[in-house]
Every structure is written in C-alpha cells, then in structure tokens.
Amino acid sequence: MITLTGTAHMAVWGKWLGDALGTNAAGASAGNALFGIFLSLIVYLFGQWLFKIGKGFFLFQPLFVGMVLGIFILFLFAKAFGTDTATFYKSAYLPGGNIIFWFLNPATIAFAIPLYRRNDVVKKFWLEIILSLIVGLIISLFVIYYVSKLIGLDNVGIASMMPQAATTAIAMPIATAIGGNSAVTAMACILNAVIIYALGDWLVKFFRVNSDPIGAGLGLGTAGHTVGSAKALQLGSIQGSMASIAVVVISIVVDIVVPPFASMMGLI
C-alpha cells in the first residue's frame, strides 16, 4: 500500500482530472469531448431550473444563464489549473462544444419547415419581404454606423459591427474583407441571439413590433438569427415563417450590401 501525503494526493487527482479533461500534455491529443457536452447540458438545465423558480425573470433565460455560468466555470477551472481561460476553453471545452455546435447545421435547415407551413404568406408578400429586408438593412447600417462613431469605436470596431445581421459564417469573412475583426463580429452575432432570446418578449411589447406579424417575424429573424426565429415561432406561425425567410434573405442581402456600404463610408 502506498500512502500519499496531502499534496501528493492533489498531484494525483490533478493529473487524473487533467488527463480526463484533456488539458495535460498527455491527454491533450485525446481531447475528451464528454466534459464539454456535460458542462453545456448542466449549465443549460440549471438555467431552465432558475428560469422556472425565478418566475421567468428575463436575465434567468437558460441560454443567458448557461453562457455566463459556463464561462465562469471555465474561468475557475483555468485558475485551478494555472492556465488562462482561453487556453483551458480550447483544450477542455471545445471538443465537446463543437459536437453540440455541429447540430446547429440540421437545426438551421429545419427552419425550412415553419417557412413552408406558411407558404401562402411567402407567395403573397415575397416582394414586400425582399424590399423590406434590403431597405431595413440599409437604414439600420446608417444607424449602427453613427451609433458606433458616437460611442467611440475605431474603424476596425465599426467595420466589425456592420455585417452582424448575417449568420456568423457569412458575417465573419465579410468583416475581414471590409477591415474589421472577425472575432468581434462573431461575438456580435452570438450576442444578437442571446439578447433577442433574453429581451425579445419585452422588446416586442415595448416597441409594439407585433402590430404587424410579418414585420415582427422579419425583425426577429434579422436581429436574432435562428434563435430569433425560434422566438418568432412562439408568437405565431406567420412570425415564425417570416423569421425563417429573413435568416436566409438577410444573409444574402448583407453579402451584397455591406461591402459597398463600407467603402462608401470610407471604412476600406
């Protein structure tokens, strides 16, 4: 029998945990995905529970709670392992996180279903839908540009804010092309969704957005991406369908409109 001193215990446990999480040199290649999956589920379920006992307080929305708590736990673990949060995130969380992240692919495709369920609205209003998204985006770009200037972002920051209405995979390369920082743009796209998910109901009520169901759907899909579409579905089938079409059309509109807008404003 080997008896271990307290610190040796710590070392053994630390090595075991490090191997299991894939943060040690030996375990790094193994990249244990289970920690990332487990952590994502636990923080989200905790968020759901908190939302329920908090009687639906908006800051207790499960996605928001999950995000903040998840980052905080990674921060604590990183401190305990003596590395920085970004490194620990990449080695321990990312393998599992990527597996869950992948399922956003089929989930995005699935929005063709609510879109098709209200094909009557799409067929009737297709011209208004396209025009509203083009004009709405151009007006928004001007507002976002001047708000960014007013708040004091530099040109890189402003350029990073321009493509955020598109889905992340479109917004990031466009941000780079117009001289922005694609990591900041990705953050914007993510926060758009989190903000719409947390504040969506309140914003819809406060700005009386739902007085026109087609407009409410297009607005939620543009501002909140697929998460906004899920919110819109809760308002009704027209809103859900319109948000789904907005996610696709606004991405293409951003592709076309944002680069010339950026050069017009002298960003590139």
Binding site: G36, M67, G70, I71, F75, Y93, F103, A110, V227
Partner: peptide, 19 residues
C-alpha cells in the same frame, strides 16, 4: 431540432470565453 435551438447555442455563447 428547432425546439433545441437555444440549447444548441450554448457552445457559441461559451465561445466568448476565448475572446
């Protein structure tokens, strides 16, 4: 899949830990 969308977004949210 649509009913899961908020959960599927958790890794994207936690991605901010890297930035």
């Amino acid at each position: 899949m649509i009913s899961l969308i908020a959960f599927l977004f958790v890794p994207s949210g936690i991605q901010l830990a890297a930035s």
